[in-house]
Computed example of a mutant assay.
Amino acid sequence: MRVLVGGGTGFVGGALTQLLRSRGHEVTHVSRRPGPDRISWDEVARSGLPLCDAVVNLAGENVLNPFRRWDDAFRRVVVASRVETTKTLAKAIAEAKRPPRAWVLVTGVGYYRPSPTAEYTEESPGGDFDFFSRLVSTWEAAAKIPGDSTRQAVVRSGVVLGKGGGAVAQMLWPFRLALGGPMGSGFQPFPWIHIRDVAGIVCHALEMEGVCGVLNGVSPASPGTSNAEFAWELGSALGRPAVLPLPGWMVRGIFGAERAVMLLEGQRVVPKRTLESGYCFVYPNLSSALRDVVS
């Protein structure tokens, strides 16, 4: 299978590329930077889709970059990096003389309203209550293409845990120095997934002809995981205590009130359709996932 991956040179994209190639698939990246096995976004917009069997979009500016102030300019970058790249690929797919068989978009569980008690499956409502939920709605709407010649799927990912990047990369040093702990109250749900399983779900959606629609990209154990439990498990994996909470006011001071919601609140998300589709998680529980990440 020839797979075109937008944003495939990032953290999740690297894991997906490795997994796809290990399964015998050819991968070409759509990227801003030149390099082997790459084409530019301008080239796709100008000349259309290269011949391929499947398309994935992972592109998106890091929302939780602590070095970027959360202002209108950065909000526009966050939106454009997701919505405009998705529109570019969707338009190219719709206009292709030989359209690909599958089209997969990776978005986020920010679609669902934060709640300490409600559980959300892929059929649950959302997407209309704050900046991030509306962003996911707009993002997913941009991916829709007419007709049924190309099978379409959306993976709503939780917090991605993996080596060398993602959420854990920013947390490791405080925890290694015994300065780690929960954020805010620690009671908020923590929707997580190992990077191998994000890549695995995308591959599953590409390879399995019957898979379409929304798939929640979270671990089966995620609905029962709180931020405090995550902190305790990470400390345990590192052999360090995890008892120093990061106060909510400090999180809001670093990231701004709107972004801080992503860290101080959370959703209990269930991968119901993901499991029903036949996907088997490599890291279904938190302790094994974190042991792999810190090994």
Rank of each mutant, 00 (worst) to 15 (best):
V3A: 05
G6W: 09
T9M: 04
G14D: 09
G14K: 07
Q18I: 01
Q18C: 02
L19E: 05
R21H: 01
R21Y: 00
S22Y: 01
S22M: 01
R23G: 11
V27T: 02
V30N: 14
R33M: 00
P34I: 00
G35Y: 06
G35K: 09
R38D: 01
R38V: 03
I39D: 06
I39Y: 05
W41Y: 10
D42V: 03
V44K: 09
G48R: 14
G48S: 14
D53Q: 03
D53G: 15
A59V: 03
N62M: 08
N62G: 10
V63E: 08
P66V: 07
P66D: 04
D71Q: 07
D72V: 11
V78N: 01
A80K: 08
A80R: 14
S81A: 02
V83S: 01
K87N: 14
L89V: 07
A92T: 02
A92M: 04
A94P: 01
A96T: 13
P99C: 11
P100Q: 07
A102L: 10
L105A: 03
L105Q: 15
Y111T: 00
Y111H: 03
S115I: 13
T117M: 03
A118L: 06
E119F: 08
Y120T: 11
E122P: 08
E122I: 08
G127R: 08
L135Q: 10
L135V: 10
S137M: 06
E140F: 08
G147H: 10
D148L: 10
V154T: 15
V154P: 05
S157P: 06
V159S: 04
V160Y: 08
G162R: 09
G164P: 14
G166K: 05
A167K: 13
V168P: 09
V168I: 15
W173N: 13
R176E: 06
A178P: 07
G180P: 13
M183A: 07
G186A: 13
I195K: 02
R196V: 09
D197S: 09
D197G: 10
V198M: 08
A199T: 14
G200I: 01
I201Y: 00
I201F: 00
V202D: 09
A205S: 13
E207T: 03
E209V: 06
G210Q: 13
P220L: 01
A228H: 11
W232V: 12
L234E: 11
G239C: 12
P241K: 06
A242L: 12
V243K: 05
L246Q: 06
G248P: 11
W249R: 12
L264K: 11
E265I: 04
Q267K: 12
V269K: 07
V270H: 09
K272R: 15
R273A: 14
G278W: 01
Y283R: 07
Y283D: 06
N285P: 00
S287G: 12
A289E: 06
D292Q: 15
